[in-house]
């Protein structure tokens, strides 16, 4: 069934788009990531203009994250205080990021930046996660006890001022690291058009060393707030949010998301992390490859609006 999109000004196949929503939503629910880093490249490959793909998929990210955060929230797995603090940093970062993105697009360098960021960030994070989780899996197979973290937490994290208690996360630390992480992720999220879960989750696990049980719920909560702000900003500043496209994607997404949450209970955390690491690594390499592969046509039509 073909449907004409009022903002993208082209027609798309509804079932294809809803199917994409289901698949990405399933992965979001499974891993507690927004899924934007998977959806944007696919939408662009299907011919949706990149600016519209990035802005409209925010609806999908928002819906699946809301649905997931409510499911996780009921089980008291969301650290509201930590999440709100990070989101505060994230909103400031997102506003800065949207402006940087506008300038880059006018210079014609936006897709270079996106490709580089995907390659470096997803490549690095995917590689680290894969390495770490494979080692953990191997140890359990050999019957050894899980590896203990080498040092407890970075010392400088404790020497910073403005300390605050985060009982749900089991932390008593300065507010500066969560704010800084939120800000960085906000900028990157706006530049790459993603929610930023794949950055927040490792930062919470490896840097802040939050209690593992609250990591996924809290990152989702933070993603909801940041994405909400980004979506409104995109609609107001760039007029690139296609409500119809967003609706189709998110209908598939919420169904897939709930299925993903159910499936998540059947896997062990280390196994999930191996799979997520491979997916992140592949997405990064796939985007990064565009820098090395000779283009089919050296000329490209760039978006004119914004």
């Amino acid at each position: 069934m073909e449907l004409y999109l009022p903002i993208a000004e082209m027609s798309v196949n509804v079932w294809l788009m809803a199917g994409l929503g289901v698949v990405v939503g399933f992965l979001s629910g499974l891993f507690g990531v927004g899924g934007g880093f998977l959806m944007a490249p696919v939408l662009v490959a299907l011919g949706i203009p990149p600016s519209i793909a990035v802005a409209s998929q925010a609806g999908h990210v928002l819906a699946t994250s809301t649905s997931s955060v409510l499911s996780y929230g009921r089980e008291a797995n969301v650290d509201m205080r930590m999440g709100t603090l990070m989101a505060g940093g994230g909103i400031v970062g997102a506003i800065a990021g949207v402006e940087v993105f506008r300038i880059l697009r006018l210079l014609g360098q936006a897709d270079l930046m996106v490709a580089l960021l995907y390659l470096l960030l997803l490549g690095a994070i995917g590689g680290l996660m894969l390495n770490e989780s494979l080692r953990a899996l191997l140890r359990t197979k050999q019957g050894l006890p899980p590896e203990r973290p080498k040092s407890k937490r970075p010392v400088w994290l404790y020497s910073l001022p403005y300390k605050m208690r985060f009982p749900r996360s089991g932390l008593y630390i300065s507010v500066i690291p969560p704010l800084a992480i939120g800000f960085t992720v906000g900028i990157l999220a706006a530049l790459m058009g993603v929610g930023g879960g794949f950055l927040i989750v490792p930062a919470m696990i490896y840097l802040l060393r939050m209690k593992a049980s609250v990591v996924v719920g809290t990152s989702l909560y933070q993603i909801v707030i940041t994405t909400l702000v980004t979506m409104i900003l995109q609609a107001v500043r760039n007029h690139t949010v296609d409500g119809v496209l967003a609706f189709i994607l998110l209908i598939g997404g919420v169904v897939g998301g709930q299925l993903g949450i159910r499936a998540a209970t059947r896997f062990r955390a280390e196994q999930l992390r191996v799979i997520l690491a491979v997916i992140i690594l592949m997405a990064g390499l796939q985007m990064g490859l565009t820098l090395f592969v000779p283009p089919e046509d050296p000329f490209i039509l760039a978006p004119t609006n914004g």
Binding site: L62, A63, S65, T66, S67, V224, M231, V254, V255
Partner: peptide, 15 residues
């Protein structure tokens, strides 16, 4: 923008 956000979050909550 607000309507799109409300639609997205509403559908998520509904699901």
């Amino acid at each position: 923008g607000l309507a799109c956000v409300a639609m997205s979050m509403g559908m998520g909550a509904l699901a």
